[in-house]
Design a protein around this nucleic acid. Structure first.
Lengths: 163, 163
DNA sequence: AAGTTTGTTCAGTTCAAACTTTACGGAATA
DNA sequence: TATTCCGTAAAGTTTGAACTGAACAAACTT
């Protein structure tokens, strides 16, 4: 009975960790399932199959398949091969902080670069067409571009720190 | 006719800026309307009323009222008073970069602190109840807490930079 | 005091994201 | 070669966020 009590307590413990830790991971623009999935893999000693995850989270296999693929895209999870095992196996990347930060910062930098370039095109467009834009708008446009520069700087700083 | 052509071009210009710049602002966890609203206010020389915004964005007054309040919460917008004007007036805060960064970083720091404390409570809970947790889980828990510490450090760094 | 005007609350609607179930193609096994 | 098994694709369903319009309370005007 003591063992059973202990087992339940361990289950509860796992459940709490998944519930709590995943909330933080959601802040990295992961959705609920993706975050929970990562935590599950993170807590597991051994690589897991889609069916393992399905059982652990109580969701459909398709949901697992989709979520695991975005985690792969973000480089937060890797597929491993074990001789004799037919199913695909996945495990969480070791370097928790580094991987998450890298994934996060890269997504920011990509977006910033894209948006900055869009704004710059608008700026060129003004000059080419000789539109008599009000002074105010022109000033704001330049300011917005500088804003993007500043963002780029911050995220580049972070990026360089954890190389 | 030249003036009219120019006017149209200016409208288009404004529209583009709202569309493009707001995409970046959405990355600070603002939804579409909040972001667009901020850009509108940002581009305007004068403070605007809810009706002005409603007309500018073509959405309901309720939507404006809700969005402006979250922008106020985040300290990205301020209410101003002008003698004789009965309606509430709002304008974008001047320091674009500083305000956004501060709002963003604060939200991160709040969340991290809360989550870290939750994890620490789980850790205490283990020790109190003398649960024989597997070594692996215990290690991971500590690691997760360190992860939060690291995040706190990064965001604190950013926070201190733009004081 | 009666009647406007203004911002917000509330109830109902719309739409997109997230899930599930079913179906399918390709690889492994017999 | 036939069959089973596994991951993904497709189609349909559910759920929650975002929006609208009507109703309301407080403040202002006359």
């Amino acid at each position: 009975m003591q063992t059973k009590h202990n087992e339940e307590a361990l289950d509860h413990l796992h459940h709490s960790m998944i519930s709590e830790f995943s909330k933080t991971l959601e802040m990295f623009s992961l959705n609920t399932t993706e975050s929970q999935l990562f935590v599950i893999l993170y807590l597991s000693d051994e690589p897991m199959t889609l069916d393992d995850m399905k059982n652990a989270l109580g969701k459909s296999k398709t949901a697992m398949s989709n979520s695991i693929r975005t985690l792969l895209d973000y480089n937060l999870v890797e597929r491993v091969w074990i001789k004799g095992v037919r199913k695909d196996l996945y495990q969480a990347e070791k370097d928790l902080y580094g991987k998450f930060m890298k994934a996060y910062v890269n997504r920011w930098l990509d977006a910033i670069e894209r948006q900055k370039s869009n704004l710059q095109q608008i700026e060129e467009h003004i000059q080419d067409d000789e539109i008599q834009s009000d002074r105010q708008t022109s000033v704001k446009l330049k300011e917005a571009i500088r804003f993007h520069d500043a963002l780029e700087d911050v995220f580049n700083d972070i990026h360089e720190k954890d190389l």
